[in-house]
């Protein structure tokens, strides 16, 4: 997923044209970064196509006999297909949390931008400070809270904390302030539209580029949130794919066969991220630049 990041500055350099950096130098830097970021992916892809024997004694960066399909078959049948279960879990945690989390962040940011009420700035500042608190620091306290309610080792133990996205609130507020004209809301009110209806039918549509951005950020954050499931979950059937592959990887000394499965599994597990990015990348760029101008 990181691979798409460096292309964004490249695009803007090209668009602005009159950059002080000579074009060729910029291209060179971009080329080097592209190789740098793509090389591990290439290694992963090549490694995933090899049989276990050939993995150690053939060139790491070039193909040997094609074994990809056998490897995939072994992966999805290993231990009753627990890998597929992990993928589904990840999709459920990530997709669900990103959708709901985006909605919550959008409503929250919109409310902060468009309604005047006492304590508004205080709340907004608290949210902003939430951006600074790393998710890792919250994992243990969350575990203790969920323990009090006997809710650790459940789907909700990972899902509910993942709904929260302070940066999304910030982004939604900035965007709503700029992108949703007060006059339009006034007009809607005069026409008799309720606040909720106004939000969904008018404001949310105006905010859609920001919503895509928030969704993508959130999607990546939840997909990569490793520590929370590690701490919360002890039932393998609830693991997201990141944690599942990690736990296999820690057993490689004992069960060396797992090394191959971890490599193929990693390749497959980055596919949803790549798909999400390719589909939503365009919106994301618009979203980022919009936020940056304000």
């Amino acid at each position: 997923m990181t691979t798409t990041l460096p292309t964004t500055p490249a695009a803007s350099v090209r668009r602005h044209g009159h950059s002080t950096v000579p074009r060729s130098a910029a291209m060179l830097i971009m080329g080097v970064s592209t190789v740098y970021f793509l090389l591990p992916l290439w290694w992963l892809f090549v490694g995933a196509t090899k049989s276990r024997e050939q993995f150690t004694d053939t060139q790491p960066l070039w193909f040997a006999d094609l074994h990809l399909f056998d490897n995939v078959r072994e992966l999805v049948t290993y231990r009753d297909g627990v890998f597929l279960r992990w993928i589904l879990n990840s999709v459920a945690y990530t997709g669900g949390a990103a959708l709901l989390g985006t909605l919550l962040a959008a409503m929250c940011g919109y409310a902060l931008a468009k309604y005047r009420f006492p304590g508004r700035e205080v709340i907004f500042n608290v949210v902003l400070s939430g951006v600074l608190v790393p998710a890792t620091a919250l994992a243990l306290p969350l575990f203790l809270i969920f323990s009090k309610m006997h809710a650790t080792n459940t789907f909700w133990a990972v899902f509910l904390p993942s709904l929260v996205n302070p940066f999304g609130v910030y982004l939604a507020r900035v965007y709503a302030t700029a992108g949703v004209p007060d006059g339009l809301l006034e007009a809607a009110r005069i026409d008799g539209s309720g606040e909720i209806r106004t939000f969904f039918t008018i404001s949310a549509k105006l905010m859609s580029p920001a919503l895509v951005t928030i969704f993508l950020f959130h999607f990546v954050a939840v997909w990569n949130n490793f520590l929370l499931p590690l701490i919360m979950l002890s039932d393998e059937r609830l693991f997201p794919v990141t944690l599942g592959l990690y736990s296999w990887n820690t057993q490689v000394n004992q069960v060396p066969e797992l090394r191959g499965l971890v490599i193929v599994g990693s390749l497959i597990s980055i596919a949803p991220l790549a798909v999400a990015f390719l589909l939503l990348q365009r919106f994301w760029r618009t979203g980022i630049s919009t936020g940056a101008v304000k």
């Binding site: 919550l104 929250c108 902060l112 709340i123 907004f124 608290v126 949210v127 939430g130 809270i145 969920f146 309610m149 809710a151 909700w156 133990a157 509910l160 904390p161 709904l163 929260v164 302070p166 609130v169």
Partner: peptide, 14 residues
């Protein structure tokens, strides 16, 4: 707000 949402999450969970 994040604190509020988190409390909400906790309530839901209970």
């Amino acid at each position: 707000m994040s604190a509020f949402l988190r409390t909400l999450g906790v309530l839901l969970t209970s």
